[in-house]
């Protein structure tokens, strides 16, 4: 079997980064458009599973671009302007789970899913921490507000969505890989 290079960005990665970004953008827009139900203050934003999953399936650059460009697209479709440091945070969120991409043999193996879940938590936590901390110099808030007002609600909901949806996508993708032979 051909050994995968973790940081490769060839034709395949160009295409899947674009698909991941477009999917994330469309799902984000749909979440706003259809006003999906929410429980308490946890909004259902299933779209965040896309950059996390694309990172795991296609590597860190694909995860980064899916998150970064996808968030730009979602905001552009909804007409919400350009929030570059939140786009960057979404990119990092997709990039970190991508660090395990090269070593994956089976996407439905228990150990792969556990490893992916751990990296999803780290990815969402670190990815959202970056823009939350950047709000300190830009918005003049203090660390406590950045953590309580931005990081906890955003990272928490992203982790919940990622932990539930990404394993389902991984199992489905395993069947696609088996079928295509790639």
């Amino acid at each position: 079997m051909e050994k995968k290079s973790l940081w490769e960005f060839g034709t395949r990665e160009v295409v899947y980064a674009a698909i991941g970004a477009a999917l994330y953008g469309v799902f984000s827009w749909v979440t706003n458009f259809l006003a999906l139900p929410a429980a308490g203050n946890i909004a259902l934003r299933p779209a965040v599973a896309i950059p996390l999953f694309f990172g795991i399936a296609f590597g860190p650059w694909v995860g980064f671009l899916s998150g970064f460009v996808g968030n730009v697209l979602g905001d552009f479709l909804s007409g919400w302007g350009f929030w570059w440091y939140w786009d960057l945070g979404n990119g990092i969120m997709g990039m970190i789970p991508g660090l395990i991409a090269a070593g994956i043999v089976s996407y439905k193996a228990k150990e792969t899913i556990i490893k992916a879940e751990i990296f999803i938590v780290i990815g969402a936590a670190v990815g959202i921490l970056v823009p939350s901390l950047l709000e300190i110099p830009f918005s003049g808030i203090d660390l406590k507000t950045a953590i309580v007002g931005y990081w906890l609600p955003a990272a928490g909901t992203n982790i919940i969505n990622g932990l539930i949806l990404v394993p389902i996508l991984m199992v489905a993708y395993d069947a696609v890989v088996a079928r295509s032979g790639r």
């Binding site: 139900p37 599973a49 999953f53 919940i160 949806l165 389902i168 489905a172």
Partner: peptide, 21 residues
């Protein structure tokens, strides 16, 4: 919350897998 997110799978999975193919 968990059940609601899980019930999004019938939408998210086919669209994503179709796009990947």
């Amino acid at each position: 919350v968990v059940a609601q997110i899980r019930k999004m799978a019938p939408l998210v999975v086919p669209v994503t897998m179709n796009a990947i193919l």
